[in-house]
Design a protein around this nucleic acid. Structure first.
Lengths: 160, 160
DNA sequence: TTTGAAAAGGAATAGTC
DNA sequence: GACTATTCCTTTTCAAA
């Protein structure tokens, strides 16, 4: 995991569909070498998979909220119970006043209410507090340290 | 945006690298037709881009937390100030006791402290409350309604 | 590990229904 | 819209350094 690998990850996050030749050119390698590096990044599990990013509004899921769940719900099969609710994008066990935090995306507040009802039905749930999102500044993926501005390093000693 | 489009989106979320022929076979279309549908989904902006999913642990970002920001920080250039902090993956304006919610991923609690310090320096920020994640049940993308179990519908009237 | 190139496969396009 | 077929480009593989 050197600087070139980091650059490759950054480039692939921006566009996973570009040819290896382009990736190679961007980091100062041949297409074949870039291909080999990406193959190993996948093999090592650093790159989990390639996906698409779907526009939530266009997909009819314009209401975003975070739900804090109170109770002793962090034990047992709670994770699976939450996983079974498709509107829940993320679920975490947290420290602090609440025991669980869920990221919920619904079409409407009416649908959000349904989700809250389903969460309430999970064993051990004592209560919920919902934080509604009014506007999202941004949602981006994991940032990989300095993916850009490393080209000069990568090209150090390069002929011409 | 019919049922076949939804299935295609679901399939691409699972693996955006698979050939169009495979996509087509999965939904009961030819590769060319699947290709054309996906092209239009991109064109309409429903599919924003194709990316890779990076393992946070392997990338050295094992500490996840959610930071509630208090103050009148939802005005002006706050969004850009948060965007400039690479450890912040998401930032939302929220309703409720706090005015902002940020999702932060750091290598350590020490680094989290640095991020909190930087958030504090933003004009209008009066205080923060941090919710630390102990364990993540799951983090998945936007769920697209019934991507599976639609094959029978799609194949209705199909010869043999 | 990287390179360059050959071989295999898929994407993109066009024409037809 | 969807299908087939063709062309073109990319991925994949491999020998060599």
């Amino acid at each position: 995991m050197d600087d070139i690998d980091k650059m490759l990850i950054g480039l692939l996050q921006a566009d996973a569909g570009q040819p290896y030749a382009a990736l190679g050119a961007a980091v100062g390698l041949s297409g074949g070498a870039a291909h080999e590096r990406v193959r190993k990044l996948r093999e090592r599990g650093l790159i989990r998979r390639t996906t698409i990013e779907v526009d939530p509004i266009a997909a009819g899921r314009g209401v975003l909220s975070f739900v804090l769940v109170e109770g002793r719900a962090w034990m047992g099969a709670t994770g699976e119970a939450l996983l079974a609710i498709p509107e829940i994008e993320e679920a975490h066990v947290v420290a602090g006043p609440a025991s669980l935090l869920a990221k919920v995306r619904t079409a409407s507040t009416r649908e959000l209410q349904d989700v809250l009802r389903r969460i309430f039905e999970i064993e051990g749930v004592a209560g919920t507090r919902t934080i509604m999102v009014l506007e999202s500044f941004f949602e981006r993926g994991l940032h990989v340290p300095h993916p850009a501005n490393l080209l000069s390093d990568a090209l150090e000693g390069e002929p011409s």
